[in-house]
Simulated assay, not measured.
Amino acid sequence: MTQYSFTIFTSADALPAEWDTIAQANIFLGRAYLAVLEKAAPANMQCHFIALYTNSKLCGIALCQYLNLSKVATFGQAEEEKFSLRRYIFKKFSSHILFIGNNMLTGQNAYVLNDSISESNALKLMHAALQSLIKSYRKKCVYINVTGVKDFDETEMPNFEEAGFKGFHKFTTQPNMIFHIWPEWKNMDDYLAALNTKYRTQYNRSRKKAEGITKRKLTLNCIIDYEQRLQELYLTVAGNASFNTFHLPANHFRVFKEELGDDFLLYGYFDGDKLVGFSTLIKNGDDFDTYFLGYDDAIQRDKMLYLNMLYDMAAYSVKKQYKLVIFGRSAMEIKSSVGAKAVTVYGVIKHTNPVINIFMSKLFAYFDPKVNWKERNPFK
């Protein structure tokens, strides 16, 4: 008779020796990346690494994150500076969140399985792991308000009801912006040739505006030297966001580079000798994931710095012949002007209070910031 079980870890060093054999399908579940979460996660986040077993043999791996939203300014500076009923209700009844997945990324980075376990059986184990963690937190007088699993596109969405996730509500937020590299693009000239006149003009204008700005790939030593400036620039962008669930610690990018080496790229943008912006990329098989960035607001407006960062990311991916650039959520319109397409992502969510859970779908829509944007199509 087949027996299934799970073990929960909090340290990357303690993971089973064969963990990375399964994780090779996704760098964001590999031991090196999980070490980043262990050593340099946001202050309000705790990470748990779940090993799934079939007859005592490792068959799957998953990431679970706990977030305490009472410790972060969630709704943006303007709303946080005044009394907000929405903010009050959210913090009062939804501060403690536990979910399978990665709140720092967009896309299915929740789990990877091998062929010895079905997705349904794996999800049943993950549901049991969530219940175990809820009890563990309760013993520490931390009462979980919301549990969930994220992010899946429509073709990936599992049958959560079948897997034992009773009473969970399906939800969606801002789409994942994905840039597909056309097979015929061998260099940036090929990309530019595919653009229509309007967006080729946009490209040329943005490049001209950025004259005087230089870009450099930063080594580990450079990242350490610029650590505080990188944090300042990151917080400038994070502070302008309408919704935040965490803030990265100052050492995050240094630890990222230490653990992932050449798979983590950080580019600094300089005005003379002054660092005025940065972008980050992560190699993940045939895909490139964009990560966090930062910039000086004044320079961004004058030099169209953000748009130039997007073009630089696209150019690198074309040059290196990657298949996809995962631009993630936010700034959907400008990302679509470069060529990214919106992919709706889904998850499931449940409030631990059964009465509140009845209204969870409406509450989620109330708390989720609405973004109106127009999709652009830059190609001929």
Rank of each mutant, 00 (worst) to 15 (best):
K217E: 10
A128V: 06
K341C: 13
K57G: 02
K380Y: 11
Y311V: 00
H48W: 09
G328K: 03
S242G: 07
S337P: 07
A250F: 13
Y226H: 09
L98D: 06
K82C: 12
G164L: 03
C64Y: 04
T197W: 06
F83A: 06
R329A: 08
T344L: 15
N240Q: 08
A17N: 14
K124Y: 08
E211V: 02
A73N: 10
D151H: 05
L58F: 02
S336D: 09
K150N: 12
A51F: 01
I27V: 09
I326Y: 14
I8L: 03
E18A: 13
Y306N: 08
S95V: 03
F288C: 14
I181F: 04
F168G: 00
A110Y: 08
L281Y: 05
K380E: 12
P16A: 14
Y191C: 01
R254Q: 12
I299A: 00
N308M: 03
V348R: 10
K319Y: 12
Y346E: 07
A41M: 03
L98R: 07
T155Q: 14
N55Q: 03
Y295Q: 11
T7S: 09
E79M: 02
T172K: 13
L29M: 09
D289L: 13
F292Q: 04
M313F: 08
I282V: 14
K92Y: 13
G272H: 01
L52G: 06
S84F: 03
Q174P: 04
M332E: 15
V348I: 11
I22A: 07
K283R: 12
L37P: 12
E38D: 10
A25Y: 14
K140E: 13
G60F: 00
K257H: 04
Q65T: 01
Y291T: 01
F28D: 06
N121I: 02
G294F: 02
G167K: 06
D312C: 07
N145K: 15
T344M: 10
L58S: 01
D296E: 09
R138Y: 14
S84W: 01
K274H: 10
Q231F: 15
V343A: 07
I61Y: 03
N357E: 05
Y137V: 14
I224V: 10
T236A: 10
W19C: 07
F9R: 13
D151G: 04
H127D: 15
I8M: 08
V318W: 05
D225A: 08
A241F: 00
G272L: 05
N55D: 12
H96L: 12
K139I: 07
I117S: 07
A250L: 14
K150D: 07
L69M: 11
L58E: 02
F165S: 04
L195E: 04
I100R: 05
C59A: 15
A40P: 05
T54R: 10
L15T: 05
Y66D: 12
A51P: 04
K257T: 01
A315M: 05
V72Y: 04
P183E: 10
R376M: 12
C64S: 09
L69V: 12
K71Q: 10
I117F: 09
P158Q: 05
K374Y: 01
Y346C: 02
K139T: 13
T344Y: 13
D273C: 11
D20T: 11
D287T: 05
M177V: 11
D297V: 02
